[in-house]
């Protein structure tokens, strides 16, 4: 009798096969695990398995930091270890905090590190040249991990936006 690859306790009843970028992975799951993994509904479009997927991309990316304490996002408290374990980040600021390594992860997953698609309304150029310039400068500061400068710029932008709203 084959045991479930996930829990290792119950007999496997479902055989799952995924092909990602040409790499075929097969595993056998018990009913309970298949349900939890979202495979139980036969045509289910939501199965992500994303956690494992990201972990696979993180493998072979050794911890290169010199600090012994796990790196933490100052906003949500999420650590890089938690990200490596779950495949999830806690908030948008994690992307900045885990900057350089996140870039490597994105390159491995997507083969790219630059967005070329849609832009939400509030991020589109405002037509206010001073505001747009400040926003560009802010992005630059974040990319270079100059967070103090970024904080100052963010305040200036907020101030300007407030003014333009009150007009």
């Amino acid at each position: 009798m084959m045991l479930c690859n996930r829990c290792g306790k119950n007999p496997a009843s479902v055989h799952v096969q995924t092909i990602i970028n040409g790499v075929k992975t097969e595993y056998d799951l018990c009913d309970a695990c298949a349900h939890e993994e979202g495979y139980i509904s036969m045509f289910h479009p939501f199965t992500s398995g994303a956690g494992n997927f990201v972990s696979a991309f993180l493998e072979g990316m050794p911890w290169t930091g010199t600090v012994s304490k796990p790196e933490q996002c100052p906003v949500c408290g999420w650590s890089y270890d938690e990200f490596a374990r779950t495949g999830f980040v806690g908030c948008q600021s994690c992307y900045e905090k885990f900057g350089k390594r996140m870039e490597g992860v994105l390159r491995r997953i997507h083969g790219a590190t630059r967005h070329v698609g849609k832009t939400p309304g509030w991020r589109k150029p405002t037509g206010d040249t001073k505001l747009d310039a400040l926003k560009a400068e802010l992005e630059e500061a974040i990319r270079k991990e100059e967070y103090e400068r970024a904080a100052v710029l963010r305040d200036q932008i907020k101030e300007l936006e407030k003014k333009s709203l009150s007009h």
């Binding site: 992500s48 994303a50 956690g51 997927f53 990201v54 495949g87 999830f88 980040v89 948008q92 992307y95 996140m102 992860v105 994105l106 997953i109 997507h110 790219a112 590190t113 630059r114 967005h115 698609g117 849609k118 832009t119 939400p120 991020r123 992005e139 990319r143």
Partner: peptide, 18 residues
């Protein structure tokens, strides 16, 4: 939540961008 560099920011990096 959006970054001009990497697009729409999502909980899992596999969905980032679009």
């Amino acid at each position: 939540a959006f970054s001009p560099q990497i697009g729409y920011l999502t909980c899992c990096p596999t969905n980032v961008g679009t």
